[in-house]
Computed example of a mutant assay.
Amino acid sequence: MPQRNHNPAEQFHAVESLLTNWLSERRAVLARYTALVVASDDLPGSASITQRQRQLCELLVDYVSVGHFEVYNELLHEAEAFGDDGSALATKLIGDIADTTDVILAYEQKYGSGDQYPETLIRDLSALGELLESRFVLEDRLIAGLHSNHRRQMQEAPEGTG
């Protein structure tokens, strides 16, 4: 977790690094999800599907946790360091994102233990995919509304101040 810093440039760079790692984790979630969807078409109820479900569930929980306990807080700290008020946007978007978390955790609870539900797997995977898409859009709006604005400020800052 980045150190909270009141220097806008240092806070920006710490958050930039955190976001780079977190978005890489997001790509891993998407890749794992896609592989599971493809495999479930061919081998529903197989041991391979069970293993892929566990791996996806572990990644999902890690991804969601880092978002809630690190990324969103650090984005808010960055807004404070830059002296702008992103809190209204952040509060709205973080609340909407939190709504998706409950569904993701319910999915993890159902499938993360290795129990098989072949009769609902395809439907649940489809719903999870739609939910992840909406969550990613909300997260991207949060990043754009806070961090991307600060990126522009950093690029526009006179040499030596950023």
Rank of each mutant, 00 (worst) to 15 (best):
Y111E: 05
Q109K: 03
E108F: 05
K110G: 00
I97A: 02
D96H: 13
D115A: 07
K110I: 09
I94N: 14
D102E: 13
P118S: 03
K110W: 05
Q109L: 06
E108Y: 09
P118F: 06
Y107D: 00
G114E: 10
G86W: 03
I104N: 06
P118E: 01
Y111L: 00
S113F: 10
Q116H: 02
G112K: 04
S87M: 15
Y111M: 05
K110A: 11
T101G: 12
K92E: 06
V103H: 14
K92P: 00
G114D: 08
D96N: 14
E108S: 10
G95W: 05
D102R: 13
Q109G: 12
Y111F: 13
G86C: 07
D102V: 11
A98T: 11
Y107K: 01
A88F: 04
L93W: 05
I104S: 05
K110C: 11
Q109C: 03
G86P: 03
I94Q: 07
T100W: 08
A106M: 07
G114W: 04
A106H: 10
Y107H: 09
Q109D: 13
L89K: 08
L93H: 00
G112P: 06
S113G: 10
S113W: 01
G86I: 03
L93I: 07
G112D: 01
L89C: 06
A88H: 04
A98D: 09
V103L: 12
L105V: 04
A88D: 15
Y117I: 07
T101Q: 03
T100E: 11
Q116V: 10
G112W: 00
Y107W: 12
Y107T: 09
L105D: 06
K110Q: 06
D96Y: 13
G86A: 12
D96I: 11
L105Y: 07
I97Y: 08
I94C: 08
D85E: 15
A90F: 07
V103Y: 14
A90D: 05
S113Y: 05
Y111H: 03
T91S: 15
Y117F: 14
G114I: 02
Y117V: 05
A88C: 05
I97R: 06
K110R: 13
D99Y: 11
T91A: 15
E108D: 09
T101E: 12
P118V: 01
T91Q: 07
G86R: 01
L93A: 01
A90H: 06
Q116L: 15
T100A: 08
S87V: 15
Q109F: 02
A90R: 11
A106W: 00
G112R: 01
D115T: 10
T100C: 09
A106S: 06
Q116N: 13
I104R: 01
Y117Q: 12
G86L: 03
I94Y: 10
D96F: 11
D96G: 08
D99R: 14
K110N: 09
D85R: 15
I97V: 05
D99N: 14
L93C: 04
S113R: 13
I104A: 06
D85M: 13
Y117M: 04
T91E: 10
I104T: 04
A90V: 07
I94D: 08
D85Q: 14
L93F: 11
I94L: 05
G95H: 04
T100M: 04
T100I: 02
Y111N: 01
A88W: 00
V103T: 15
Q109E: 10
E108G: 09
E108M: 13
D96A: 14
D115W: 14
K110T: 09
S87D: 11
A106L: 10
A98G: 02
T100D: 12
V103W: 06
A98F: 09
D102Y: 08
S87N: 08
